[in-house]
Amino acid sequence: MIAFLAHYLASLLDPIAMVLCAWLGFLFKHLWKGAAIGALAYVALILLMPGIHMIAIILISKLFAGATFGLMGAALGRWLRPSPKLETPDA
């Protein structure tokens, strides 16, 4: 558990992954879609980097960190984008 927490907290310090996952999460209005795309983007980013050995604890911590960034981006997108206004009929 301590190894997972250490890798998770270290993953939260990656600025490239933070921007990429938050931007992808920003594109979706649903929080779970933002979390899913953020998690997948972080794992894809890690797989492109040579020299990182994928063991289960690292993969899971990267998935959770990507989901965290995706959730932050999706929440920011919901907050910044205006919601559609309901039109009322004129009397």
Rank of each mutant, 00 (worst) to 15 (best):
1 M>A: 15
1 M>R: 12
1 M>V: 15
2 I>D: 13
2 I>M: 15
3 A>V: 15
3 A>W: 15
4 F>T: 04
4 F>Y: 09
6 A>Q: 14
8 Y>S: 02
9 L>Y: 10
10 A>E: 15
10 A>S: 13
11 S>I: 06
11 S>Y: 05
11 S>V: 02
11 S>E: 08
12 L>Y: 06
13 L>R: 13
13 L>H: 08
13 L>C: 12
13 L>Q: 11
14 D>H: 14
15 P>D: 01
15 P>L: 09
15 P>Y: 11
16 I>S: 15
16 I>G: 14
16 I>V: 15
16 I>Q: 15
17 A>C: 11
17 A>K: 00
18 M>D: 09
18 M>P: 06
19 V>F: 08
22 A>W: 01
22 A>L: 10
22 A>H: 00
23 W>Q: 15
23 W>M: 13
23 W>E: 09
24 L>P: 00
25 G>I: 04
25 G>K: 04
25 G>V: 01
25 G>H: 03
26 F>N: 00
27 L>Q: 15
27 L>M: 08
28 F>N: 05
29 K>L: 15
29 K>T: 11
31 L>Q: 04
32 W>S: 12
32 W>F: 11
32 W>E: 09
33 K>W: 13
34 G>C: 07
37 I>S: 03
37 I>W: 04
37 I>D: 00
37 I>E: 02
40 L>F: 14
40 L>Y: 05
41 A>G: 10
42 Y>D: 09
42 Y>F: 13
43 V>F: 11
44 A>Q: 08
44 A>I: 12
44 A>N: 10
47 L>N: 02
48 L>M: 14
49 M>V: 15
50 P>N: 10
51 G>S: 09
51 G>T: 09
51 G>E: 06
52 I>Q: 06
52 I>K: 05
52 I>G: 01
55 I>Y: 14
56 A>Q: 06
57 I>L: 10
58 I>L: 13
58 I>R: 07
60 I>R: 00
60 I>N: 03
62 K>R: 12
62 K>V: 12
63 L>N: 01
64 F>V: 13
67 A>P: 04
67 A>W: 03
67 A>K: 05
67 A>D: 10
67 A>F: 00
68 T>I: 07
69 F>E: 03
70 G>L: 01
70 G>A: 02
73 G>R: 00
73 G>E: 01
73 G>F: 01
73 G>W: 07
74 A>N: 03
74 A>V: 03
74 A>T: 04
74 A>H: 05
76 L>A: 14
77 G>L: 05
79 W>R: 11
80 L>F: 11
83 S>W: 07
85 K>N: 03
85 K>T: 06
86 L>P: 03
86 L>S: 10
87 E>V: 04
87 E>S: 10
87 E>R: 07
87 E>H: 09
89 P>K: 02
89 P>L: 10
89 P>I: 03
89 P>A: 09
91 A>L: 05
